[in-house]
Write a protein that binds this DNA or RNA. Sequence first.
DNA 1: CTAGAATTCAAACGAACGTTTGACGATCGG
DNA 2: CCGATCGTCAAACGTTCGTTTGAATTCTAG
Lengths: 205, 205
Amino acid sequence: MNPELFSTKQRILDAAEALFASHGFAAASLRQVTSNAQVNLAAVNYHFGSKENLINEVLRLRLDKLNADRTQALQAALAKSPAQLEDVLGAWIRPALAASASERGSTAFVRILARTYAEQNERLRAFLHDNYGHVLRDFAAALGTLLPHMDKQELYWRMDIITGALTFAMADFGTIKRRGASAEQHLALTADHLIRFAAAGLRAE
Amino acid sequence: MNPELFSTKQRILDAAEALFASHGFAAASLRQVTSNAQVNLAAVNYHFGSKENLINEVLRLRLDKLNADRTQALQAALAKSPAQLEDVLGAWIRPALAASASERGSTAFVRILARTYAEQNERLRAFLHDNYGHVLRDFAAALGTLLPHMDKQELYWRMDIITGALTFAMADFGTIKRRGASAEQHLALTADHLIRFAAAGLRAE
DNA sequence: CTAGAATTCAAACGAACGTTTGACGATCGG
DNA sequence: CCGATCGTCAAACGTTCGTTTGAATTCTAG
């Protein structure tokens, strides 16, 4: 019942997030996690029940915040009249980038997301769909309003493209590294580029 | 020394490709592979030496063909005067989609690619870079010629976006499924959409 | 201060992993 | 026909995995 920053539970979560990101869910062992977290091996099963539950907790904590941020940003974007395509795209993209650059875990979360999408794990996919599908639908509705002539199927398809580009391009394996710029500048620049690219792609044809 | 279609070696490669795609490199065990291939467990180490070598072989066989196809398509695109941005993008995108829809392995290869990008495995990354980096550079050079005003760093960045979108969108987890259309029609349509989206994104600003 | 709950710990569990072994046929050049 | 190479096979190797156990320790409420 202790929400301390350095509690056993929190240390496990931090170490697990980093290791899941860099080695994958299957390859990251609980022995590595507990060793990095400097806690006993049994602590994972005591606090989380199982490795799978730990994976879900790691995802849930980050995704809850990401989706809340996205929903809030979407509402802010739609409050403007007239709402611009770039604003809605920014509400989708910027919170994800911000999550990837947050203080704890650094870029770990985005790499975890990329892995999660690549995983064929049906339980994980169902978990994501059940808990966060509504956010995707909200954005689809907003974009549909701004692009009234676009076929609905095509819109979903292009959102897939954008999501893929966002996820993969951020997941650390890009060939471009920032030089000179601070992390914040790099983040803002990256968001601008992605939004411009995505907006042009959405408006195509 | 037997290049039969249903040799032990080939059956292992087919089963491994399917299992690597659906479960990942780490989670797919050699016991699963050999069981699905209906060969003895020891056959993997006899024919491939180790699991890691098997992984590399699975990747190498597919990538050799993909990169040869891409290189050839790029030359064909550049032979036209004036070469169009869409042609070069098509030379990048269409062979990848074709590989994903080839007779054997169906979509397995693309999912493997998505996993490979998401994997943090440095050996794998080095393997890919050493063997296939020159193709990426050829395309960057071709695109750079067609977009003379674009910053080189920005070009690499946008190629990352496109690669991410291509890999991700093809890896089976999209929300859009074709209906009615044949596989070939779906393939052609998908390629057209991706190329149009990517071209618009590249030309942005 | 103390009983009881919560947490940590070292140790062990059975299962699954990649790999190795050595014996047993199959195949083939001389 | 035969010796040699190649391929297959069941079995076992040592290691690592996630999980469980039960005792030791720490925390907390009365």
